[in-house]
Simulated scan of single mutants.
Amino acid sequence: MIQEVKKHYGGLFEPALIEEINRVATFMEVPEGKDLMQPGQYIKAMPLLLSGSIKIMRPDTEGDELLLYHLEKGDTCAMSMTCCMGNTKSEIHAVTETPAKLLMIPIGKMEEWSSKYKSWRNFVFSSYHNRMMELLESVDNIAFNNMDERLEKWIEDKIQIINSKHIYTTHKEVAQDLHTSRVVVSRLLKKMENNKKIKLHRSFIEVL
């Protein structure tokens, strides 16, 4: 496992920290669509994402969910950190969007490493900052953009994450991410197809 840690974090963390991560972390390889965190759960470990993509969503009181941001290679979840440090229950839903490889760090190490390793402390602060910027972008997107623009932004983000112009998904799944109805998404996708921006297939959306 140490080769994976060095590959992704060798230029970021001190050698001594790399050794500690290798010693205490649990390696996980999970398929697409795997629930990693549910609302109401206590967090026992913090994830470091080696590969793949994770969706972070916020549920409402009716059980619907809004996509907040994505985690990609090299990222960690600031909300997981907050729950770990405060020993509080999760208020988010995390699910793998693609197959992913993770390192799970025991929560007991977080505070210890923050005082022991400057690189870890900087990593934590940087993660908080990046996730906050992504949350603000999500809020701006919801507050200031109409659903047409939000859908186009969702498609742009998706093709960047999966590195493909073929998005295998359903209209219902898109609607869930955007917190709207399937009917609205179907209508807007058809409009985009008429404008030659995409082509709709039976099981995927092709971006032109």
Rank of each mutant, 00 (worst) to 15 (best):
Leu189Glu: 03
Thr98Leu: 06
Gly63Pro: 06
Ile161Pro: 08
Leu36Trp: 01
Met104Pro: 07
Thr96Gln: 02
Glu173Asn: 11
Gly33Trp: 05
Tyr9Gly: 12
Lys34Phe: 11
Lys153Arg: 07
Pro106His: 03
Pro59Asn: 06
Arg150Gly: 00
Glu20His: 02
Thr169Tyr: 02
Lys165Asn: 15
Ser127Phe: 07
Thr180Glu: 10
Val185Gly: 02
Ser90Asp: 07
Val207Ile: 15
Tyr42Glu: 01
Lys191Ile: 10
Ala94Phe: 00
Tyr9Thr: 09
Leu151Gly: 00
Thr82Ala: 13
Ser181Thr: 13
Arg58Tyr: 14
Ser80Tyr: 05
Glu112Ile: 04
Glu134Leu: 09
Ile54Glu: 08
Met28Tyr: 13
Pro39Leu: 02
Tyr168Trp: 00
Leu208Glu: 08
Ser138Met: 14
Lys55Thr: 13
Asn195Ser: 12
Ile155Tyr: 09
Glu137Met: 11
Leu178His: 00
Lys158Asp: 09
Glu152Pro: 02
Ser126Thr: 14
Ile21Met: 13
Lys7Phe: 09
Ala78Leu: 07
Val95Ala: 04
Arg131Gln: 13
Glu29Leu: 09
Leu208Met: 12
Gly40Thr: 01
Leu151Ile: 09
Thr61Val: 14
Lys197Gln: 14
Ser119Glu: 12
His129Asn: 04
Gln41Tyr: 00
Pro15Met: 01
Asp177Lys: 10
His129Trp: 12
Met85Asn: 04
Thr26Trp: 03
Pro106Tyr: 01
Thr82Arg: 11
Gly63Tyr: 04
Lys172Thr: 01
Ser80Trp: 02
Met57Leu: 14
Lys172Trp: 03
Leu48Asp: 06
Leu17Val: 08
Glu72Asp: 14
Met28His: 15
Arg182Cys: 08
Asn22Gln: 05
Tyr9Lys: 05
Leu48Thr: 10
Glu20Phe: 02
Ala143Glu: 15
Asn195Lys: 14
Leu50Thr: 02
Lys118His: 13
Leu136Ala: 14
Lys44Ile: 01
Pro99Tyr: 13
Gly10Ile: 04
Leu50Asn: 05
Lys191Glu: 12
Asn146Pro: 05
Cys83Trp: 00
Ser127Val: 01
Ile162Met: 10
Ile56Gln: 03
Tyr42Cys: 01
Val95Asn: 03
Asn194Val: 04
Leu135Trp: 03
Lys197Asn: 12
Val139Arg: 11
Leu49Ala: 04
Gly108Ser: 11
Met132Gly: 00
Val139Gln: 06
Ser80Asp: 02
Met57Ile: 03
Lys73Trp: 13
Lys73Ala: 15
Asp60Trp: 10
Gln3Gly: 04
Arg202Phe: 06
Val183Ser: 07
Glu193Asn: 10
Gly11Met: 06
Ala78Gln: 05
Asn141Ser: 14
Asn145Tyr: 02
Asp35Arg: 11
Ile155Val: 03
Glu19Thr: 04
Val207Met: 07
Leu66Glu: 06
Glu193Cys: 05
Trp113Lys: 07
Arg121Ala: 15
Ala25Asn: 07
Arg23Thr: 12
Ile162Pro: 07
Met104Ala: 13
Lys158Thr: 15
Met110Gln: 08
Leu189Gln: 05
Ser127Tyr: 09
Ala16Arg: 15
Pro31His: 14
Arg202Met: 14
Asn87Met: 08
His201Leu: 10
Met110Leu: 15
Asn22Tyr: 01
Gln41Glu: 09
Phe144Gln: 12
